[in-house]
Amino acid sequence: MTMKKVIPLLFAVLSAALFLSGCAGSNRQLDPAGVYAGDKILYTADATITGAYETLDTFVAWEHKHRAGLSKWPEVRSAADYVRTNAKTWIDNAITVRELYKNFPTPENRKSLEGALVILRAALDQASAYYQSRAPQTST
């Protein structure tokens, strides 16, 4: 049972960390003299993308470090491998759209960027859902 309850909780915490990393500055103004020149969208995008990487990196590093101890729950490794397989694509897609917005800051590209960030935040929920689908239904 324990891990069955703890792992989704870890994902929830990771998800919250990812969300917060993106909105940590949502009620704060950018110093216009900074490198973002007051462009809050771009700042939020970069904070979310780097926060997403750090969050996913934390999870796979944790699983790798404690693999022996976690071997009783193969679904944890499956979920980590799922992240290992897809994380690069999730991050790279967000980077591509972010670059497009940076070079051509049109309303359409801004909308695409916001959509990409939502997808990135949803990726962790997807990893969590993947874990749930692999977890045995019986208590362990």
Partner: peptide
């Protein structure tokens, strides 16, 4: 992160630079 989210005020030039540097590295 919760503490960061609760903070008010301005995101300083140093903080912006730190985020941009991290992004460029990634």
């Amino acid at each position: 992160l919760v503490n960061d989210a609760k903070k008010g005020g301005i995101i300083t030039t140093e903080q912006q630079l730190a985020v941009q540097t991290k992004y460029a590295s990634l």
